[in-house]
Design a binder for these strands. Structure first.
Length: 582
DNA sequence: GCCGTTTTCGGCCCGACTGTTTTCAGTCG
């Protein structure tokens, strides 16, 4: 079993133990173990081979044994027995808002409910309302939760959540009672998709703010409204929480609700080591009665500083080692959208784009970019009107003519998004590919190959002398379709060895390669190009989503080739070509 | 179940909100 698969098993064990009513700290130990495993930089084989797994914080004797068993045999008796003893239906009931492990256990023990269908029936028969600890409102809420499950149970792309979040934030900031306001949560951390939106406001007069918040016209329902906290749901199913706190608490609350949970746990522990207690209300000596005696913060930086840390940007607050790095003052200057000087991997009407070469060039010029690259599909992508050798040669001439015309200040690179055929070979003639400024090699077919075959296919394409960069590593479409299976580590190593870039596809549905893989890859020397994969001028805006991912992946300008000015990029592309012809 | 150590077991983050209750448990973040 792989690291990822084992981590999933540990997570599932945690959930199952919760439904059994186990000791909450034991449950947390399994969750922590899963996370420790996922964020391992080192190879699991090596760690187990050298018996160093127990050196990993969070993995003790019991977990090490279970992980080793899973890794070697692919199964675990403890897990099998546990799974056997709990109905799948109980697990899915956790998805209903308001139902946690304890209530589900009560429902199961007293009414023998073990599926959502049975739960729904019990609601209709009014049995839930009669249960001790439940009531009519609980019953209605559960029934509502079951009805909404289909429509609202999903997550929302960051890109789409932003459409809702930005007007709300602007509206809050415009209210006279609001002294400061920000979004928080996974949205502020720029996760690729979010479950809900969080807003934090600093104010001494919360009433009007709460009233304004729940009165927005896109709101479908208000699920909670108190003096300082409210929750609403929009038509899209997206939920948003607002918390109003006194201004002096604002930065503590902002930090707290930005999370992540893992980051906060580490921050609190660090505070405790210094005799301090950190919470959403403030930072004070453990023994102090109130936060009046605590430390004040005029910014989040003050909080980090009070714990001897340099500022950690929200994107990095995932509990993946950022505290240790901040302790040494080594948080890098993350790449910013202003650093981008141009973009590769874009399409025109020559294949499946919606704008012409000139229109796209004009749009790129509007962005102030020094260059952009056209990379239309190759002939194997028949459905996308891919270019054959003849049409591509014609496009090379068009690009050349456009550059020579000096109609635009933005330079155009001639490239192609060349299909990687099922056997790993490229879809176009090598001599022609070598004449292009660059080649993006991508998979668009035979997604279901076994992982070894797919990995070999990608590596073969990487080793092709014409390949400049690898397109969307997994082909995933977030919230729609999983990517094809591929051994990312091997592909990354091959890319580095062959001086090939792996793109960071900035399409909000792709964001591929995943942010979790970038830090270690970049540390090993991998370069990326943040590519909007634009099929229309307005898609150039996707760059922002790509920047989010790059920042979450700890990338700096040094790791991103399209932060280079035109001259630098020309040199880099030419170097790859000449280096190979030697 | 992990950790740390005051080395053998106690601590592990905790408050707002809801719906139930009539002083609190469960959920959520």
């Amino acid at each position: 079993m792989t690291k990822r698969e084992i981590a999933d098993v540990l997570k599932e064990i945690a959930t199952l133990l919760e439904l059994k009513g186990e000791n909450p700290f034991k449950i947390r130990a399994y969750s922590n173990g899963a996370r420790a495993l996922e964020s391992l930089e080192e190879d699991l084989d090596v760690l187990i081979g050298e018996s160093r797994l127990s050196d990993v914080p969070g993995l003790g004797k019991a977990l090490v044994e279970k992980i080793e068993t899973l890794h070697e045999t692919g199964s675990l008796e403890f897990y099998d027995n546990l799974k056997e003893s709990i109905d799948d239906g109980l697990v899915s009931m956790l998805e209903i808002p308001g139902l946690g492990a304890k209530k589900i256990k009560t429902l199961h023990d007293s009414l023998e409910i073990s599926s959502i269908e049975e739960l729904q029936q019990a609601c209709e028969e009014g049995k839930i309302a009669e249960l001790k600890g439940f009531g009519k409102k609980s019953e209605d809420k559960i029934a509502e939760g079951i009805r909404n499950r289909e429509a609202y149970g999903k997550r929302h792309l960051w890109w789409e959540a932003r459409e809702v979040a930005q007007p709300i934030l602007d509206g809050l900031l415009a209210l006279p009672q609001v002294e400061m306001a920000s979004h928080a949560g996974s949205f502020r951390r720029k996760r690729e998709h979010v479950g809900d939106l969080d807003f934090i406001v600093g104010s001494t007069d919360p009433g009007p703010i709460m009233d304004w918040f729940v009165a927005q016209d896109q709101i479908k329902e208000t699920t909670a409204k108190g003096d300082t906290k409210a929750s609403v749901r929009f038509d899209s199913g997206l939920q948003a929480d607002l918390r109003v706190v006194p201004p002096k608490q604002f930065y503590f609350a902002l930090h707290h609700f930005t999370g992540s949970k893992d980051h906060n746990v580490e921050m609190r522990q660090r505070a405790l080591e210094r005799g301090l207690s950190l919470s959403e209300w403030g930072l004070k000596p453990v023994e102090a009665e109130s936060f009046e005696e605590g430390i004040s913060a005029q910014s989040e930086s003050d909080i980090f500083e009070a714990l001897d840390l340099s500022f950690v940007p929200p994107e990095l607050r995932e509990g993946r080692g950022e505290i240790d790095v901040a302790e040494n003052g080594l948080i890098p200057n993350l790449v910013e959208i202003e650093n981008i000087k141009g973009v590769f991997h874009n399409h025109t009407t020559a294949s499946d784009g919606r704008a012409t070469l000139a229109e796209m060039t004009a749009a790129a010029q509007d962005y102030g970019w020094e260059y952009w690259g056209v990379a239309d599909h190759s002939k194997a992508s028949f459905q996308a009107n891919g270019l054959d050798e003849g049409r591509l040669e014609a496009q090379i001439e068009s690009v050349k003519a456009l550059n020579e015309s000096r109609e635009f200040s933005t330079f155009v690179f001639s490239g192609v998004e060349c299909d990687i055929l099922p056997d790993g070979s490229l879809d176009l003639d090598q001599d022609l590919l070598m004449r292009l400024d660059y080649v993006v090699s991508s998979v668009h077919s035979s997604f279901s190959q076994p992982v070894d075959e797919m990995t070999a296919r990608l590596i073969k394409a990487i080793e092709h002398p014409a390949t400049t960069m690898l397109g969307h590593l997994t082909g995933r479409l977030l919230l729609k379709r999983d990517g094809y299976e591929v051994d990312a580590r091997k592909v990354i190593d091959a890319a580095i060895a062959n001086d090939v870039i792996i793109e960071l596809n900035a399409n909000p549905y792709r964001l591929d390669m995943d942010w979790r893989l970038w830090k270690s890859a970049a540390d090993k020397g991998l370069l990326t190009s943040i590519n909007p994969d634009a099929h229309a001028p307005e898609h150039f805006a996707f760059l922002e989503a790509g920047i989010n991912v790059a920042r979450k992946g700890w990338l700096t300008v040094e790791n991103v080739i399209n932060t280079l000015p035109l001259v630098g990029v020309k040199e880099a592309l030419a170097r790859k070509r000449s280096h190979l012809s030697e």
